[in-house]
């Protein structure tokens, strides 16, 4: 219900973002006039073919790249400033955990780095880490090292490392790209569970249509070369509810959306 009240309150505003790379001296337009508003505590998927610039868009939203024109505002501040205030949790397809630290220390890391020492309480931090590990179901694994864990578990740790920060915006860059089908499915359900327990604004980049519909409140389809927003779908939350109950989300409506998105992506490929 909360999300309904705050429906028009956008957490992230992407305004007129255009970006191009130079390739062998030629300028290649990657993103053209992207306008997106990400609502607070909602999950938005961005879907598009390989290499259309989804990751570039994420990097611009996270402030790693400056766009040529246009701007991004995260809760009214610039992405760089948001990083400095630790408002962004970035999960990429490789977990990026530090191999010499165990799970606990890896999750503790965002709290120790870039923190003002006077505001800092080590005991509070440890409690927070334990709570987060509990939330993602890793509490029993806290003393293990990344090389002792499977890819799926590593990805979970990576998620915990993003979630441990207070009130963070999650940016997930194909978080399940390297996982096998069953692990993906499990992680997908667990993600929904986690977000229903502690709602976050989530941006999810994926190239899996079913996954994008199942997980999110809205799906944005990007076209190819340069990437523009073709269409954005609002997803009825009943699929999410079904999933939570362990039922398969298959219905006529669901199939229609899948087919629509597939057609859009397919057309883009032909043109």
């Amino acid at each position: 219900m909360e999300s309904k009240i705050l429906k028009h309150h956008n957490d992230i505003e992407v305004c007129n973002v255009t970006h191009s790379y130079s390739l062998n001296g030629e300028s290649v337009e990657v993103l053209r006039e992207i306008n997106i508003g990400f609502k607070k505590d909602s999950i938005t998927s961005i879907i598009g073919a390989n290499g259309v610039g989804k990751t570039t868009l994420l990097n611009i939203i996270a402030g790693f790249i400056e766009p040529d024109t246009g701007s991004v505002l995260i809760r009214g501040i610039s992405p760089k400033e948001a990083c400095r205030q630790k408002k962004i949790g970035f999960v990429s397809h490789d977990h990026g955990l530090l191999p010499w630290m165990n799970v606990f220390d890896n999750v503790l890391l965002p709290l120790t780095i870039n923190s003002k020492s006077n505001m800092h309480n080590a005991d509070d931090d440890e409690i927070k880490v334990l709570q987060t590990l509990e939330l993602v179901g890793l509490i029993d694994w806290r003393n293990y090292f990344p090389h002792q864990l499977s890819m799926g578990l590593c990805q979970r740790v990576s998620l915990a490392r993003a979630l441990v920060l207070d009130d963070v915006i999650l940016i997930l860059d194909e978080p399940m790209a390297n996982l096998d089908e069953l692990t993906r499915e499990k992680l997908r359900y667990d993600l929904l569970e986690i977000f229903s327990l502690s709602p976050r604004t989530v941006i999810l980049v994926t190239h899996n249509i079913v996954e994008s519909i199942e997980l999110s409140n809205s799906v944005i389809v990007l076209s190819k070369h340069p990437a523009e927003i073709v269409k954005s779908f609002e997803i009825n939350s009943s699929y999410i509810d079904n999933l939570k109950k362990g039922r398969l989300p298959i219905s006529v409506e669901f199939n229609n959306i899948v087919n629509n998105i597939r057609k859009l992506l397919d057309n883009e490929k032909k043109s």
Binding site: C83, K86, F90, L98, L109, P110, I113, N114
Partner: peptide, 23 residues
């Protein structure tokens, strides 16, 4: 250095020295 680790350090606003020290 592992690219994803660098991305993570960037996303929490780590300084150059912190990246050096921790990563």
């Amino acid at each position: 250095v592992d690219h994803s680790s660098i991305t993570f350090f960037q996303s929490i606003g780590a300084s150059k020295l912190e990246v050096m020290k921790y990563l």
